[in-house]
Design a protein around this nucleic acid. Structure first.
Lengths: 195, 195
DNA sequence: GTCTATATACAGATAGAC
DNA sequence: GTCTATCTGTATATAGAC
C-alpha cells in the first residue's frame, strides 16, 4: 500500500548501509537521512534499529542465496558449476553482504541477526556440498575429496578472498585466490582422470 | 623503565580488545578500565585512540607474522610446510588478529592502521608464495599451479575459515575448510606424481 | 503516518589539580 | 605521570504536536 513507501525506503537504505558499514557502524540517523524519512516514521514502522536491520538483512541474505542457487543448481556438469560459482563476477571491494555481518560482534550476540547469518551459510553449504557429491559420484572428482569438507573450503575461499581484497583495497587478491582454487580443482580432477 | 608500566598495560589491553572487538568497537574507556589506568595516563603516553591502537596492532601483526614464518620457513619439504601451516592449531573462534581488522571500515580509512594491515598480508603472501614456488620446482606440485595465485588461495582459506566459524559460533567449519584444502593439495600432488 | 523537540548514555578528548 | 572533572558530539529512543 501507498502508506508503506517510507517503510520501503527505510529498508532499502538499511540494506545498503549494512553492506557498506556493517550493523554497529550503521546509525538510525544515517538510515533516516539516506531514506529521507523523519525519526517518527522509523519508530512507527519498526520497534528500533534491531528490527529494521533484521528485516533488511533477511532480504539481502535471501537475494544472495538465490543468486548462488542459480549458478549451482542447474543441469551442467558438477565441476563446471563449482567453477562458475568461484569465478562469478562479484563486487569484490564491497564484499559479501552476508559474510560481512560475521565480523560484527554485536551481530553475533543479537539472536534475530545471528540466526539469519547462520542459516544462510548453512543453506549455501548444503547447496555446494550437494554439487560436490555429484562431482565425486560422476567421477569428475576423486573419492579422496570429502564433499562436506570441500564445501567449506569453497565457501572459505570466497569469504577469505573478500578479506584479502579489503586488506589491499584491491580486487586482485580475490581474483588470484579463486583462480588458484580453480587450478587446484582441475589438477585434482586431472589426477582422477588418469587414474 | 619503571615509569612505563601504565603504558605497557595500555598496549596489552588494547591488543586484546582489538582482537576481540575490532577497532571501532573498542573505546578508550574500555581500554583504560581493563588496564586499570586513569584517563590522564592514556593521553599522557599517547596522542589518542588511533596512536595507541596502531602501536598495539603493530605488535600483534608482528607476532602473527613470526608464528607463520616459523612454520613456513624451515628445511622440511615444501608441501609439508604448507600443509602444516593450514593445519596449525588456532584459536578459531577468536579469529585472526590481523584479518579481523580488515572488516572494520574505520581501519581502512585510517592510514596508520591500514598500512600495518596491508604490509602484514603482503609479507605473509610472499612467504607462502615462496614455499609454493619451491614445491613446483621440486615437482611436489604440478606446474599448472601458479604459486602467486595459490598463495592467495591458501591465505583466503584460513581467513574465510574464520568467517565461517564465527557465523556458526563453532570451529567446525574452519576445520572442514582446511582439511578439504589439504585433501585437494594432496590430490593435485598425487596427479603430478603419476604423470 | 509523519514530524520536531527532547532525554539519556556514551565516545573521544581537554583542563588543570596533585 | 597520574588523577578527576568537564566538554562536545553522536547513538538510540521517547513525547507529543500535526
Amino acid at each position: 500500500m501507498m502508506t508503506n513507501l517510507a517503510r520501503d525506503r527505510l529498508i532499502q537504505s538499511t540494506q545498503e548501509l549494512l553492506w557498506q558499514r556493517g550493523y554497529t557502524a550503521t546509525s538510525p540517523a544515517a538510515i533516516m537521512k539516506q531514506a529521507a524519512v523523519g525519526q517518527g516514521s522509523m519508530y512507527h514502522h519498526f520497534s528500533g534499529k534491531t528490527e529494521l536491520a533484521a528485516e533488511a538483512f533477511r532480504l539481502s541474505a535471501e537475494a544472495t542465496y538465490r543468486k548462488a542457487k542459480l549458478l549451482l543448481d542447474n543441469g551442467t556438469p558438477a565441476l563446471d558449476r563449482v567453477i562458475s560459482y568461484l569465478l562469478r563476477q562479484r563486487d569484490v571491494l564491497r564484499g559479501c553482504p552476508v559474510g560481512r555481518m560475521a565480523e560484527d560482534a554485536e551481530v553475533l550476540t543479537t539472536p534475530e541477526l545471528f540466526e539469519i547469518l547462520q542459516s544462510t551459510f548453512n543453506r549455501l553449504r548444503a547447496l555446494i556440498s550437494e554439487v560436490l557429491s555429484e562431482g565425486v559420484s560422476t567421477a569428475e572428482l576423486p573419492t579422496s575429496l570429502a564433499p562436506a569438507e570441500l564445501a567449506d573450503t569453497v565457501l572459505a575461499i570466497v569469504q577469505g578472498g573478500y578479506v584479502l581484497a579489503r586488506a589491499e583495497n584491491d580486487p586482485a587478491p580475490f581474483e588470484r585466490a579463486v583462480n588458484g582454487a580453480v587450478a587446484l580443482l582441475r589438477a585434482a580432477a586431472d589426477g582422477q582422470a588418469r587414474s
